[in-house]
């Protein structure tokens, strides 16, 4: 096995182990917040994947919502409460939607791509609001999840879900890191820099874009089904464009250099949300807005670029040399 591959696997494992241990020390409210942040982080990881190929989706609420509803409907209508199964179904459902929608929108770039994804997510929102059979605008509540047949009591269910979330997040982050470092991941960067040359070298920009969109969709579905279980309730707002806006916020805050940074950024968002809900309930959006502008001005490479400064050749920073170059290119 290549040294960097081994390092990626190893850091994924170490991170997962560390987070699992930490989980037993955290207070319940923070446990819930971290779980929710991981759900958001997974969706944002999808956006990062798209960003590496030069695209930003302002409509990831679409796949987040589909993942959540797929898991929710399976749980309430068919009575499947197995958390791993619900996650899988959420991921597959959204991934399939990504594979279907991807080819339709893969020709678009920049704001057209962004707006088209918004439009699609809002179509879903509009449909769900009117579908009274599945709760309309109120949505519906999910039963408590089970874990391989085990039904945790109220005190431990948050911990059980946290453990699941950590495992899923570390697996997803490791897989994404491997993909970014692979030849296919390098081709995505090439697509972002110069599409014409990619075609003239004989590779398909369309394929790269559809692949990234499908991966982003699957990650979005995973995040959606996870948060459906964490929140215990889903509604059409999962697909509303302001929800998608938060995912974009997390991605920009994280930057596309590090896969770990998205989860840190998501946690920052959640903590800011909790604190401002408590102390400045009227100005939560304003704080986020100011935060976003400040990030773009003062930290253009995102939280990931901070990681890199700290750990020069650390696991999260990826391959030092090329990652540094990316840093220079990062918008």
């Amino acid at each position: 096995m290549h040294a960097s591959t081994r390092r990626t696997y190893l850091s994924g494992l170490i991170l997962a182990a560390a987070l699992l241990v930490v989980g037993f020390l955290l207070p319940a409210w923070l446990l819930f917040t971290v779980t929710k942040a991981i759900g958001y982080g997974l969706v944002a990881l999808g956006i990062i994947t798209l960003m590496r190929g030069g695209l930003v989706s302002f409509g990831q609420g679409l796949v987040y919502c589909i993942g959540a509803y797929a898991a929710g409907l399976l749980a309430t209508r068919i009575g499947v409460t197995e958390a791993p199964l619900l996650l899988l179904v959420g991921m597959v459902a959204s991934g399939l939607v990504g594979l279907l929608v991807g080819p339709l929108i893969a020709r678009y770039r920049g704001i057209f791509f962004a707006m088209l994804t918004v439009a699609l997510s809002m179509v879903l929102y509009g449909i769900l609001v009117k579908m009274n059979a599945i709760g309309g605008s109120d949505g519906f509540t999910l039963p408590e999840p089970t874990f391989f047949g085990w039904q945790p009591d109220v005190g431990t269910s948050d911990l059980a879900l946290y453990v699941t979330a950590v495992i899923v997040a570390c697996a997803a982050a490791t897989a994404c890191r491997l993909y970014y470092d692979s030849m296919a991941g390098m081709m995505a960067l090439a697509v972002r820099e110069n599409e014409l040359r990619v075609e003239y070298l004989g590779s398909s920009v369309f394929n790269v874009t559809v692949r990234n969109f499908a991966i982003a969709a699957a990650l979005g579905g995973l995040g959606g089904s996870l948060n459906a279980m964490a929140l215990g309730h889903i509604d059409p707002l999962f697909s509303f464009w302001t929800t998608s806006g938060e995912f974009v916020f997390i991605s920009v805050l994280a930057g596309h250099l590090s896969v770990g940074a998205v989860f840190v950024s998501a946690l920052i968002l959640e903590l800011v949300r909790s604190f401002s809900n408590r102390y400045f309930p009227e100005t939560w959006q304003m704080i986020i807005g100011i935060f976003l502008i400040a990030t773009i001005i003062f930290l253009p490479g995102g939280v990931g670029s901070l990681f890199q400064r700290v750990l020069k050749r650390g696991p999260a920073a990826g391959r030092g040399e090329s990652a540094e170059n990316e840093g220079r290119a990062a918008p």
Binding site: T283, M286, G289, I293, P331
Partner: peptide, 26 residues
């Protein structure tokens, strides 16, 4: 932000939208 990526400026205007939402509520 002139001369920067269109999508980046889109994000800036999104941030302004968020700020103005709360300003008008205040």
């Amino acid at each position: 932000f002139y001369g920067r990526d269109e999508v980046l400026i889109l994000l800036i205007t999104y941030a302004v939208f968020l700020i103005l939402e709360d300003v008008s509520k205040l």
